[in-house]
Design a protein around this nucleic acid. Structure first.
Length: 575
DNA sequence: GCCGTTTTCGGCCCGACTGTTTTCAGTCG
């Protein structure tokens, strides 16, 4: 039985949904959701903690009851409480929650009064007029439901940061030109640099008589207006993305930007802290005895609460408030500190640019080095290189390096980790490289135990320097493969192996939680673009965002170091 | 269901907007 933290979190989240429909105490429901969130991003596997006999109630949000439930899930793979709950509340009802305009109260009502259990039954009731009988279901709501049922449920769809951020930037720039508008900022999860975002949140500072709302809802790409108020409006774009705009007077901008940047969990934690100090926080500012004491800037908000400014990337209630209070916030890594890229492809395999073009593009970014890491033979689909072809490339790089003055190409390869844990090229060849980047490209469906054993075996090879896209996830397309990341990180720490943070828009792998685990274990991270063209080198910024969410500082990231230091770190295993 | 410098009970963040109401519940973020 292998129960991962995400499985336990899923159980608790499902309990929360079902209890919500059942009409349980909202704070009890929140307790399950809070615990699910904490467990999902907890740096150690509950399974291991249970085996060690660790007292789970020492974890924030977990008390006696939930501790027992976790133990039951770990030991049996299921939870009798959830099974019983499912008998009382049909799990099918959860799909109704995905319909915009339908929350737990209405699901409960639909079920109790009309026996509705699913979206299709709701549709039938809508068509035969039964819904009209329910008090509180007026013509407008019915019309909204009719429209919503015509499309796929959209409450949970998330967009990649790479796709949604440019749209947000474009709209923000367009709104800046509105009358009496001082500034417009992107808030929400995009500002926090989350890998995906559900919608676009914008905050604007405007003086009186601004026409920004009209400008907003009148944009060319607006498909529908969901909500239209004097200070807040919500629209859907033709491409399906939801956009919210909040407008406030300039002197309250900081408080509002803070409120809509979130995360919700960070805000709640901050507000609870404030209330203990006799203060109240809302989207207009911090108040003490109803007197406004901070609202201009976000820094003011934190200052009156007695702590330094917390960067948006850290605002997840994952310990940043405690760190701020103790003055031990990390100094997050920045794009300008990056001095090279350690994962790039060329026309030798599936890249679109030559060695020289890649070298010049990296130099244009101010880099001192670029590692060429074309695929190896096993990856046929990418025309992976065999021994002869790789040796030819090594020669070509040597000749090119002799000509290049301000940048060095590093000789490497993205070496396949084969199913048996050996590497895809003989050691005699690997030893001619500066270092090897190793990755899993097939047999994703092994059990956690087998997959972990496969990779740990590969790590025994002293040429194995960087573990590329370690979890194999593809956002929205493929779940990460089963893997004991704690064991992998321990091995990296023992052997001096670097973990890659792959900056491709659909990878962003490893993600924030694993960055923190690596940092705490003393494992360095390489932020790499996995560039398949010169333009791809620009993806570095996306990787930096993820690294910052993972609390990484300059010294945690190997490619903030100069060439000599990098070579030393990457080759240390071979000496 | 959790939690505690107001500690084992009684709190638990806060407000905008909508629709269907005559003062508010539900949803959403």
């Amino acid at each position: 039985m292998n129960v991962a933290n995400r499985d336990i979190a899923a159980v608790f989240n499902e309990i929360a949904e079902l209890l919500d429909i059942e009409g349980a105490n909202p704070f009890r429901i929140r307790a399950y959701r809070n615990a699910a969130r904490v467990i999902f991003s907890y740096p150690k596997e509950m399974k291991n903690l249970v085996e060690e006999g660790f007292d789970l109630t020492t974890i924030r949000t977990i008390g006696n009851d939930l501790s027992q439930k976790i133990i039951e899930i770990v030991k049996t793979g299921e939870l009798s409480f959830l099974n019983n709950l499912k008998h009382r509340v049909s799990p099918e009802l959860e799909e109704l929650l995905k319909i915009p305009g339908i929350g737990p109260k209405r699901v409960h009502l639909l079920h109790e009064l009309l026996g509705i259990n699913s979206a299709s039954e709701l549709k039938a009731a809508l068509e035969n007029g039964k819904l009209n009988q329910i008090a509180g279901f007026g013509p407008k709501l019915l019309e909204a439901l009719r429209a919503a049922l015509g499309q796929k449920p959209s409450k949970t769809k998330r967009y990649r940061l790479y796709d949604i951020r440019p749209v947000a930037q474009q709209i923000a720039a367009f709104l800046c030109d509105a009358k009496e508008t001082v500034r417009v900022e992107i808030a929400g999860s995009i500002r926090r640099q989350r890998d995906t975002a559900k919608d676009i949140d914008l905050v604007a500072a405007c003086k009186k008589n601004s026409d920004i709302m009209e400008r907003f809802i009148g944009m060319d790409d607006v498909e529908a207006i969901l909500m239209r108020g004097s200070t807040r409006s919500s629209i859907v774009l033709r491409n399906g993305m939801h956009v919210d705009l909040r407008v406030v007077p300039p002197r309250m901008f900081g408080a509002t930007l803070h409120h809509f940047t979130g995360s919700k969990e960070h805000n709640i934690a901050l507000r609870m802290m404030a209330s203990k100090k006799g203060m109240k926080i809302n989207e207009y500012g911090v108040f003490k005895e109803d007197i406004l004491i901070a609202s201009d800037t976000e820094a003011d908000i934190y200052q009156v609460l007695g702590m330094p400014y917390i960067l948006p990337e850290l605002r997840e209630n994952r310990g940043e408030i405690e760190a701020a209070l103790e003055n031990r916030l990390p100094s997050l890594v920045e794009l300008r500190q990056i001095r090279g890229d350690l994962h790039a492809h060329t026309v030798y395999t599936d890249g679109t640019n030559t060695l020289k073009e890649m070298a010049l593009a990296a130099h244009a970014r101010g880099y001192e080095y670029l590692a060429i890491t074309d695929h190896t033979q096993h990856l046929r689909i990418a025309h992976g290189l065999g021994e002869a072809k790789l040796l030819e490339q090594i020669g070509a790089i040597d000749r090119l390096n002799a000509d290049l003055e301000e940048i060095t190409l590093l000789k490497s390869a993205e070496v396949d980790i084969l199913a048996d844990g050996t590497l895809d090229l003989p050691d005699s060849v690997l030893k001619q490289l500066d270092f090897a980047v190793c990755a899993v490209h097939y047999r994703f469906n092994l059990s956690a135990k087998e997959q972990t054993r496969r990779i740990l075996k590969a790590m025994e090879n002293p040429c194995f320097s960087i573990f590329a896209h370690p979890t194999g996830r593809l956002l929205g397309l493929r779940e990460p493969y089963e893997l004991d990341m704690e064991a992998i990180i321990r091995s990296c720490a023992d052997r001096g192996i670097i973990l890659e943070l792959n900056a491709q828009p659909d990878r962003l792998d490893i993600h924030d939680i694993h960055c923190r685990m690596a940092k705490e274990a003393g494992v360095k991270v390489a932020i790499s673009t996995d560039a398949h063209s010169t333009a791809d080198l620009g993806l570095m910024e996306l990787g930096i965002g993820q690294a910052r969410r993972g609390w990484l500082e300059k010294e945690d990231v190997i490619n903030t170091f100069g060439l000599e230091e990098v070579i030393k770190l990457l080759r240390r295993r071979q000496h």
